[in-house]
Simulated assay, not measured.
Amino acid sequence: MSQFIVIEGLEGAGKSTVQRHVVDWLDARGIAVMTTREPGGTPLAERMRALVKEVHDEPLTMEAELLLMYAARVQLVKTRIQPALAMGTWVVGDRHDLSSLAYQGGGRGIDLGLIRQIKAAVLGDFGPDLTLYLDIDPAVGLQRARARGPLDRIEREQLGFFERTRACYLELVRGDPRCELLDAGRSEAEVKAAVLDCLERRLCIPG
């Protein structure tokens, strides 16, 4: 049965790299796989991503930010992720619902109960089968993000925002058996080894 695997983490945690490792691992086992990212992943959702990520003349309220995230997420889930899973294709996503709980909940301070109500109203009980959370010190992650190039609107937030986001991530991940916490502060080779070990333990697919 196809599964939905999600990579989560702060800026600079290495989500894109880990996503490639997961895809390569599945490819080597002959599994059809599709990748996505959030916000985004469809033409319409990518436009919503731009509204969230880019700096505009008009400030974006935290409530509007949250609703745009879910609008983009619903568009992606309904038009790409669920149809792919129904066809037997595995999906490996860069971010999903946990990001909204951590960033808009932990970081912005929006009530987690309200966020969960929105999620339940628009997506029901749909969610990842496995989430790999890449934990990293926010200061280290932001340093890596700056080395990549110009920062987007969210990446320009103060360090305290990311510290609150990380604290929320950790609390949520530690309470969810579908999540695996990985130390993203280690070398790329060490992180890759930890990811592959997790996939071997969690998915039990012959190589």
Rank of each mutant, 00 (worst) to 15 (best):
M1G: 13
F4D: 01
G9N: 11
R20I: 10
W25Y: 09
A28I: 08
M34P: 01
T35I: 00
G40I: 00
P43I: 11
A45H: 06
R49M: 05
K53F: 13
D57F: 14
E58G: 02
T61S: 15
E63M: 14
L66D: 00
L67P: 13
L68M: 05
Y70I: 07
K78I: 11
I81A: 01
I81F: 02
L85T: 10
G88F: 00
T89Y: 12
W90A: 02
L98I: 14
A102F: 01
R108N: 14
R108W: 04
G113W: 12
L114Q: 14
R116H: 11
R116I: 05
A121N: 12
G124I: 02
F126T: 05
D129E: 04
T131L: 01
D135P: 04
P138Q: 09
V140K: 15
Q143F: 04
R148G: 10
P150Y: 08
E155A: 10
E163C: 10
A167L: 07
L172R: 12
R174G: 15
D176C: 05
L181C: 02
L181M: 03
L182G: 03
R186S: 02
S187K: 07
D197F: 12
L199H: 00
R201E: 01
I205N: 00
P206F: 08
G207W: 13
